[in-house]
Design a protein around this nucleic acid. Structure first.
Lengths: 210, 210
DNA sequence: GTCTATAAGGTGATAGAC
DNA sequence: GTCTATCACCTTATAGAC
C-alpha cells in the first residue's frame, strides 16, 4: 500500500529524510493498528523504527501529527476498491469483484484495516471530517449506481447503502476480528481466506442475482 | 443487560456495596467501550461513577480487575442469542431469528459490543481464553447444527463457520461502526435500524433458502 | 541529524486521617 | 467507607551538546 505522507510545514527534501519518514510511518502503522492511538507510545514507535524518541519528533512535530499523516496517506488507497466499481460493467460481477477486492485488502493489509477500525470504534474523533467528506460522497455516488442497476432489473432489489455496509463489515471482519477468528478456527496461516472468498462470493451472489 | 460481577477476593456483602459495585461497572462500561482499556483512565471512570479514585480502588483492587469483572459479567449474556438457536425449529427461521436478535443487541447494547470490539481488534489480550473456551465450543456446537440442516436439505449449502462470522460482522457493524454509519446516513435516532433489519433479513434469507 | 538529559504533566495505586 | 494527600512511574515534548 502506497503511503503518501503529508507533513504540515515540514516536507521531506533529502533522500535520507524521505527514507526515515517512511520508516516512521511504517512503524507507526504497526503500533497504532495494534494498540490504538491512546494505547500506542512514542517509545514503541521509535523502537520499531530504530530511532530515538527525540529523533522521531524531529521528523514529526507530535504524536498526533504522525497519526494524522498516516491516516491521510492511507485514506485514498483505502477507498480505491470501491472507486473501481464501474457503472458500465456487468452489475452482479462488478459487485462481486468489489467484494473480492475488499477481502483481498483485509488479507494483504490487516494493519491498515485495524487502524481505521480502532479509530471508528472509538467514535472516529480524528477522521469524522473525511467520513462526512470524501467517503460520504463516494458512497452516495456508488449507491446511485447500484440503484440504477436495480431499476434496470440487473440485480435484485435491496438497499444500496446497507449493501455496502454489509460488504464492508463481512470483509473487514477477517482483518479486524482476526484474533477471534483464529481463536475459533485455528487456521494454518491464511488458509481460511480461501473459504471466506468462496463463502462471501456465494453470499452476495445469492443476494444480488435477480 | 445483566451484569454479574465476579470480584476475586472481595464479594459485595452489604446493599450499599452491591449498589456501588454496579455503579462502577456501569461507569466502566461507558468509559472502556468508548476509549478501550489503555485509553480509559480511572479518573474518567470515577467521575462517571460519582466516586473518588481511591474509593473506586476500595471496591476493585486495580484497573484491570474492573475490566475483567466487566467482561466476565457480560460474556454469558453476549452469547445467549446464539445459544437460543435451536436444532428443532424451522432452520431458515431459526437463523433469521438469530440474525434479528443479534441486530437488536447491537441497537440496545452498543457499548457492550464496542467493549468486545475494542478488545478483539487489539488482539484479544484479555479474553483469548474465553474465545478459545466457551465461545469456540458454542460455535462448534451450532456449526454442527447448521451442517445437519444442510445435509437434510433444509437450508442451502454453505460454510457454517463463515456464515456465523457473516452474521456477527453485519449485525455488530451497526454498533461498532456506528460513528461511520451516522457520518454517512445522518439518520434521526435509530431510524436506520429498521432499514438494517429488513436488509439483513433479506440478505440471509436469500442466502439460506434452498 | 542524532543524541542525552530533563522538564511538565498525567496516571495507577497507596497511606493514613476521619 | 470515604476522603485528602502523595508516591512512583510513565509519557509527551523540549533543550542543548555534538
Amino acid at each position: 500500500m502506497r503511503i503518501e505522507p503529508k507533513m504540515p510545514g515540514r516536507q521531506p527534501r533529502t533522500r535520507i529524510q524521505k527514507k526515515n519518514t517512511e520508516t516512521i510511518l511504517e512503524a507507526a502503522l504497526e503500533v497504532f493498528s495494534q494498540h490504538g492511538f491512546r494505547g500506542a507510545t512514542l517509545d514503541q514507535i521509535a523502537k520499531a523504527a530504530g530511532l530515538s524518541k527525540p529523533n522521531l519528533l524531529y521528523y514529526f512535530p507530535s504524536k498526533v501529527a504522525i497519526h494524522r499523516a498516516l491516516i491521510d496517506g492511507l485514506m485514498k488507497t483505502w477507498l480505491d476498491p470501491l472507486r473501481e466499481m464501474k457503472a458500465d460493467g456487468d452489475p452482479v460481477e462488478e459487485v462481486i469483484a468489489y467484494v473480492l477486492r475488499k477481502l483481498e485488502m483485509a488479507r494483504e493489509f490487516p494493519r491498515e484495516s485495524r487502524l481505521f477500525a480502532n479509530e471508528i470504534v472509538q467514535g472516529a474523533p480524528n477522521i469524522m471530517d473525511k467520513i462526512e467528506g470524501e467517503l460520504k460522497n463516494l458512497v452516495e455516488e456508488k449507491a446511485a449506481v447500484i440503484e440504477g442497476w436495480i431499476e434496470q432489473g440487473k440485480i435484485a432489489p435491496c438497499n444500496p447503502y446497507h449493501l455496502i455496509f454489509s460488504i464492508w463489515s463481512t470483509t473487514q471482519h477477517y482483518a479486524d476480528f482476526d484474533a477471534q477468528i483464529r481463536g475459533i478456527l485455528h487456521p494454518e496461516g491464511d488458509a481460511h481466506f480461501e473459504q471466506a472468498r468462496h463463502h462471501l462470493e456465494t453470499l452476495f451472489r445469492r443476494m444480488l442475482t435477480p
